[in-house]
Design a protein around this nucleic acid. Structure first.
Lengths: 221, 221
DNA sequence: ACCGACAATTTTGCATTCAAAAATGTAGAA
DNA sequence: TTCTACATTTTTGAATGCAAAATTGTCGGT
């Protein structure tokens, strides 16, 4: 197995929550499962630690990183900035065909909304955001976006929405598509930021952060 | 030596250009120099590869990454986005004391400009940009900024400037400080973007990219 | 002399091994 | 019984060893 594949496999395990945030990462088990020895596994863990998905504690092994409220806020904030930038660049560079493709995904997503199929709705939703970033034609930006969004993926695409919030989100997506079609970069950036700000507020309100707050858990006695 | 230190040492060696872009990274030599074995060295190289400073070629070792014109453009583009975001956030969160500190560095930098001391000018320049990012109070943003700017540091802070361009850059910095003092986030974001766009144009014009363009080098005969 | 095939050497990537550190378990004293 | 000191076990972090791959060097054919 290639180094990048090892990193990818472990990343997937972490993102799927198979090793939940805060849990210790069992080196020996993962070695058996991936059929590799500790050397390449540990190389991968250090890479993932640099990405922020793994927390390394010297002489105490590694844990799946846990996000505090502050982390979540910071990540969303950066994500807003990256998507806004992507939106502006995309409007300069996107082709008509790419816009049409996004419009199709959008229409499909709206259908899923009408059917109240949250899973499928989120799938389309994510595809649209990623397509906009891809259309920006900037691999550096795309790379940062991937690593930042990976860390908030679960919060962003799992949180249930109130009917009101969901309706607003769909409206925002109409506006996003509209700005794209008009190639209104500034407008698109604006909408994307608001869209993500709303999502962030929702996520934080839902208390989706992963802190255990052991300091608030009273000891027995 | 701690893992993070190993990464830092090698990063420094690469950023100093001691191993120039495109050159092979001599594993055995580095091991001796850092007094470590190949295992921790290779862990560090994988981390640096994930950062974009090192290029790994399967079964062919690692090289110091080389930036093409496109890479340079992309990195500057992202840097613009990050600094603009940092500027907006900084205006919301910066304290009066922090602004005063930046104003002091600014005054000093202007003095170095009058003395035509490019080295010292760049030092202050960089300190100001970093202080703005720090004032944004977002460690995630700061982290991305660090890794993106590391890759363009040499291009950004070594390129000589024409007297005209230098004068304009100083004016832009006046405007940056002014926007900060007025806590005009939108304005600051605007100026920072323009400032970096100009720098990027300058760098690209100077042909600072690190591509060898072997395809353009005519063979003998 | 020049090119290509084959052998020798080097380098890479990973498994294994080993010492040090941390975690765990145990026994004895209060 | 409960706490602490000590021994045992486990886990971590790094060095070494080994097989596979790539590079280099050599030789024979043209």
């Amino acid at each position: 197995m290639l180094h990048e594949d090892v990193v990818g496999r472990i990343r997937a395990i972490l993102l799927d929550g198979e090793i939940p945030p805060g849990a210790r990462i069992p080196e020996r088990e993962l070695c058996e499962r991936l059929q590799i020895s500790r050397t390449p596994l540990r190389e991968a863990l250090k890479v993932l630690a640099a990405e922020g998905l793994v927390q390394l504690l010297p002489h105490r092994g590694s844990r799946a990183a846990k996000l505090t409220d502050k982390d979540m806020r910071d990540l969303f904030e950066v994500c807003q900035g990256l998507e806004a930038l992507a939106g502006e660049l995309a409007c300069e560079r996107i082709t008509d065909a790419e816009i049409d493709a996004i419009a199709a995904v959008h229409a499909n997503m709206v259908r899923h909304y009408r059917e109240r199929d949250l899973i499928q709705y989120y799938r389309g939703n994510r595809a649209i955001h990623e397509a906009i970033v891809a259309a920006a034609g900037n691999p550096v930006l795309a790379g940062l976006y991937t690593s930042v969004t990976a860390r908030i993926r679960r919060a962003r695409y799992v949180t249930p929405m109130t009917p009101e919030r969901w309706a607003v989100a769909v409206q925002e997506h109409d506006a996003i598509l509209n700005a794209l079609q008009r190639r209104d970069g500034v407008g698109l950036a604006h909408i994307l930021r608001a869209h993500l700000r709303h999502k962030r507020e929702e996520v934080l309100q839902a208390g989706f952060a992963e802190t255990e707050r052991t300091d608030l858990v009273p000891r027995i006695a």
